[in-house]
Nucleic acid binder design. Structure first.
Lengths: 231, 231
DNA sequence: GTCTATATACGGATAGAC
DNA sequence: GTCTATCCGTATATAGAC
């Protein structure tokens, strides 16, 4: 599996999930033609991410959004009841795509070292394919409504727990040496986050997502290596 | 060196910080009595960080700040010309303190492995002593005026450069094995950032800054270890 | 479905009394 | 030095034409 193949899979999921969003919000969205809604929602979501990531969601005015999408303010309000609900729709949709793909791919690997690699790569590839959203989620979480904040915390905790479990399993099987699984899981997470938080920097240095993956996997493995194996 | 010793050696008292700000901004601040300015600036800065870190600087209204400080809007505007300048004063002051301390302490260590440890610990201890400001700086940088953004980028690049230099020196002296110094420096930075970005999480788990320092130093050293030394 | 025009509220900033 | 009252721009959101 390389990143190019991975990306195709995600794009398919995005469109499918956009249709789900439409189905879920049929009452709140005034427009009734599915094709129109899906097309315009994608435009609205990506414009929201673009503007918010530049100057902050709170600072993004509906006029900014109107300019960026090429739609009037009146038209925009036909797709969502307000700014809060717009972001709620966006968050729900993206979160469910990422979570589903992440779960699917790590469940496929029973061996801890391989599961670790799969989890690291999948997380990096997901954040590469949807970098603006990952960045947005991290930077804006604390500024959103309480309900959204809770979901963000839960999602963070879940991901970290997945890594901690893999590390613990590997320890028990003797594949990894004895370490503080929880602390290492946190550190791994911070390295994964760095990829999407500092995306521009890595691009300028010509560091690809695959090279980054190799590097941090090497870093983690050096630490997990079973020292002084019985001769 | 541990955090307790660090705090004794370095005077990071808010009072001292505010005296410097007063000296630097004598013309812009309408109030002339130093004791009053220092007392109120302290209140204003800490309220700014508190509110901004909760809901974002942009979302913090002057009325919020008025409520939190117990001062009227009119009084607030006697201490700074506007919201932009308030944050500029705060940033300039904190940035110069942290940079100065960071430089002083790593310059004192000539040996790369020791300089590495000193740089890691100093950065962690600084961010522990001024966590609200470090958090604020990271989260708000992109939402501030262009000039402030540039300074934030330069400061980031500088810190990362310091780590890269230490790693390269250590390689040339044979103290570290051959690695990609720049990429490792980035990764180290991301682990340092995790400390102040996820401060609450670590506090809940009873992970102290000293334990965190030990952990990431062990992590980094495992990777840098010279493998298969000549027998 | 999409537009323009507008109601209404809230934000930053200032004037001038005390 | 600090307060209250207020100006004025801009924000969200809606009404109603096309």
């Amino acid at each position: 599996m390389n990143f190019a193949e991975f990306k195709k899979q995600v794009d398919l999921s995005k469109k499918a999930l956009c249709q789900e969003v439409f189905a879920e919000n049929r009452e709140r969205i005034r427009i009734k033609k599915e094709a129109t809604v899906v097309k315009n929602l994608e435009k609205i979501f990506s414009a929201t991410l673009k503007i918010s990531n530049k100057k902050g969601f709170q600072a993004m005015s509906m006029r900014d959004l109107s300019r960026e999408t090429g739609m009037s303010m009146g038209a925009l309000y036909a797709y969502f009841p307000g700014k809060e609900e717009l972001v709620a729709m966006l968050q729900r949709q993206r979160r469910s795509v990422t979570q589903r793909i992440f779960e699917e791919r790590i469940a496929a690997e029973p061996d801890p070292p391989k599961r670790l690699e799969s989890a690291v790569r999948t997380h990096l590839y997901l954040s590469e394919a949807m970098q603006p959203w990952f960045y947005f989620s991290f930077m804006e979480a604390k500024n959103l409504a309480a309900e959204e904040q809770e979901k963000a915390v839960l999602s963070e905790r879940y991901t970290e727990g997945v890594f901690a479990d893999i590390l613990q399993d590997g320890q028990q099987l003797g594949a990894f040496r004895k370490i503080d699984a929880r602390l290492l899981a946190s550190i791994i997470k911070s390295m994964l986050q760095d990829w999407y938080l500092k995306r521009g920097k890595y691009a300028r240095r010509n560091v690809s997502v695959d090279r980054y993956a190799e590097f941090i996997l090497g870093f983690i493995r050096a630490y997990l290596e079973v020292k002084n194996p019985d001769p």
